[in-house]
Nucleic acid binder design. Sequence first.
DNA 1: TAGGGCTGTTCGTCAAATCGAACGAATCGT
DNA 2: ACGATTCGTTCGATTTGACGAACAGCCCTA
Lengths: 186, 186
Amino acid sequence: MADNAADVVSLIAASLRRERARTGLSLTEVARRAGIAKSTLSQLESGTGNPSVETLWALGVALGVPFSRLVDPPRRVIQVIRAGEGPVVHSEQAHYEATMLASCPPGARRDIYRICAQPGPPRASQPHMPGTLEHLVLSTGRVLAGPTDEAVELWPGDYVSYPGDVPHIFDALEPDTTGVIVMEHV
Amino acid sequence: MADNAADVVSLIAASLRRERARTGLSLTEVARRAGIAKSTLSQLESGTGNPSVETLWALGVALGVPFSRLVDPPRRVIQVIRAGEGPVVHSEQAHYEATMLASCPPGARRDIYRICAQPGPPRASQPHMPGTLEHLVLSTGRVLAGPTDEAVELWPGDYVSYPGDVPHIFDALEPDTTGVIVMEHV
DNA sequence: TAGGGCTGTTCGTCAAATCGAACGAATCGT
DNA sequence: ACGATTCGTTCGATTTGACGAACAGCCCTA
């Protein structure tokens, strides 16, 4: 994502050109489908202007891409983090390790963690950013997880999702309890 | 997400009110931080107007929320899918099961799957939507996964991410190879 | 009660985004 | 070779978003 608002227009310009090239449509045709003047689209693709959300939205629909795709630069890389590697966050209550696998890059909306915990005092998390949604898939062991007052017991392969902006726990019931957590910033 | 461009402004209006209520800031203060006139913000929150991306961007920064948060409505539920449950997709080459855990709801940008595969002929996936990014965390077993021509061998706990819009494989090397896949529609 | 500070709204003005038409260039078919 | 069609760009005219000031309402204090 751009660091400041001034870069957004040029970023959008590049996105519009890229997406239109992908569809193979002409500038005239995209403008017609979006219901905007082709002169407007021409200026936007050249980096001149500052489109309104309605204009940009119509273009997103015409190009068949989600809205956010036009304001976020593409990124495509192959990255491997081995079981022992990666930045690790230790819980204050110990017996709990979270390895950040895919941090929320600028403009994205999810973090992915690998969790490894041992039985002991329940690991309590403070609420995260409002609107956060957590997904948990248990790999091995057994765990009591979810909102503090309505936690669910999970076995290997089980899945649970719950709001992340309320107090919640991750309480390992067996040694070497591991899982994957997707923290989604809705 | 809004179905048509006309709803976007009212959706943004609601988002602006919601996010500002969350921060507890006053309209005047948010306008000051965003560097825009408070009259502009007042009109935007009332659903009048059609902000430019620069304006909306500045507001996103001032409110401390990602840009996309302002155009997507919130959602929050608790859902559990047990190891045996959920909609299952069988591969045409068999020996490969994918359970959809969290399908991409309107406006969201990721699917979450539980994978269980057996050794056999490599499971080849056709490219998905352009811009798709796949994250894979291996739970048990061993697998050769990634873009077809640059696949990586993974052991339990290993993580890999790769573009999903190119041909890629998931080739189990041990029985009962399980993992979690996050398909992200960037 | 009068004052100051804050809230959010509404007004007129100016700059800018959008539009529609005309333009030169390139391609295609007759 | 010539018109016909499409391409993307540039131009002036119009619409509209953004701004700043003035506004009424609220709370607290002197």
